[in-house]
Simulated assay, not measured.
Amino acid sequence: MKDIKIEDFKISSQIKIEDLPTTFDLESSEKKIEKKLRKVSEDLAEIQNAMYAHGKYSVLFCIQGMDTAGKDSLIREVFKEFNVRGIIAHSFKKPTNLELKHDYLWRHVKALPARGKFGIFNRTHYENVLVTRVHPEYLMSENLPDITSVKDVDDSFWEKRFNQINNFEKHIADNGTIIFKFFINISKEEQKNRLLRRLNKPNKNWKFSPDDLDERECWESYQACYQEAINKTSKPHAPWYNLPADDKPTARYIVAKILYDTLKEYTDIKEPELPAKEKAKIDDYKARLENE
């Protein structure tokens, strides 16, 4: 099977989104890809166990993509070997009334993973420079100072949000959060096929919403917003990765491999040893149990 190189997917310079691939050939069968994914997921789980015991770093795993990109199934398959105590997932939907009474980052800040844990953001703080940019009328519900109508939302407003997001990510990275941001990149044709599949299969109908078609009509606008968001916010401490996602098993394996190959470089993540005083008494502790 073809080897995965992180640099093939990490975005470290300005990109044009139309040039980013939505497919990647692993030169292997689906069965072999799934087998390799299981192995990498198990290896990742071992790192997470050590990280949980170590308690120095946390991981923030962010995924953004168009409707039908396969976010839920990707999370399920990549992290299914994890101990539930060390992982927590958040799926950010339309802001609640309470969330709208706070700044837009508030609900994301309070959902950040504690040291030792993996946090998953299924849709992320980037909704605030993607959905609200395509639909600026949504900003009116935030009741922002100096924004009384859509006409007040200009380029400087979005530039300020990009700076706020960059500062937020730099702050948490400086304090021990390892950040991964994946753009789940599917083609427009593949999205069409997946939407049709939802309509053609009765057991998948519940996933379909007419809003999906309305948002599809905004495809080009979303692509432009993704392009600028990625270019403005892919930083060494919080890089974006382009994830070719037209084939789901391939996408899942690429994600798991990037996570594993990155985290294994943190050689200081180790399970702590017992204090010397207690370690010296291990034989005594074993004897007490065996002699019960």
Results as ranks from 00 to 15, higher is better:
residue 228 E to I: 12
residue 228 E to V: 08
residue 229 A to F: 11
residue 230 I to A: 02
residue 230 I to F: 09
residue 231 N to F: 01
residue 231 N to M: 03
residue 231 N to L: 02
residue 232 K to I: 06
residue 232 K to Q: 15
residue 232 K to D: 04
residue 232 K to R: 15
residue 232 K to W: 05
residue 233 T to Q: 08
residue 233 T to F: 10
residue 233 T to N: 08
residue 233 T to I: 10
residue 233 T to S: 09
residue 235 K to E: 12
residue 235 K to W: 00
residue 236 P to W: 08
residue 236 P to V: 06
residue 237 H to M: 04
residue 237 H to I: 13
residue 238 A to Y: 02
residue 238 A to V: 07
residue 238 A to P: 09
residue 239 P to M: 15
residue 240 W to M: 13
residue 242 N to Q: 04
residue 242 N to H: 02
residue 242 N to I: 11
residue 243 L to N: 05
residue 243 L to F: 06
residue 244 P to V: 00
residue 244 P to F: 04
residue 244 P to R: 06
residue 245 A to Q: 03
residue 245 A to W: 00
residue 245 A to L: 04
residue 245 A to N: 05
residue 245 A to T: 02
residue 246 D to P: 00
residue 246 D to H: 07
residue 247 D to W: 01
residue 247 D to V: 03
residue 247 D to T: 06
residue 247 D to Q: 06
residue 247 D to P: 01
residue 247 D to E: 12
residue 248 K to P: 02
residue 250 T to G: 01
residue 251 A to G: 13
residue 251 A to H: 01
residue 251 A to Y: 07
residue 253 Y to D: 03
residue 253 Y to F: 11
residue 254 I to C: 08
residue 254 I to H: 01
residue 255 V to C: 05
residue 255 V to I: 10
residue 255 V to Q: 10
residue 255 V to S: 00
residue 258 I to H: 06
residue 258 I to P: 00
residue 258 I to G: 00
residue 259 L to K: 14
residue 260 Y to H: 14
residue 260 Y to N: 15
residue 261 D to T: 13
residue 261 D to E: 15
residue 261 D to R: 02
residue 261 D to F: 10
residue 262 T to C: 08
residue 262 T to V: 12
residue 262 T to P: 05
residue 263 L to T: 07
residue 264 K to C: 06
residue 264 K to L: 15
residue 264 K to R: 15
residue 264 K to F: 13
residue 264 K to T: 15
residue 265 E to Y: 07
residue 265 E to V: 09
residue 265 E to M: 10
residue 266 Y to H: 14
residue 266 Y to V: 10
residue 266 Y to A: 09
residue 266 Y to C: 06
residue 266 Y to T: 06
residue 267 T to S: 15
residue 267 T to G: 13
residue 267 T to V: 13
residue 267 T to L: 13
residue 268 D to C: 04
residue 268 D to G: 08
residue 268 D to I: 03
residue 268 D to P: 01
residue 268 D to H: 14
residue 269 I to A: 13
residue 269 I to K: 10
residue 269 I to Y: 12
residue 269 I to S: 10
residue 270 K to G: 09
residue 270 K to P: 07
residue 272 P to K: 04
residue 272 P to D: 11
residue 272 P to M: 05
residue 272 P to L: 13
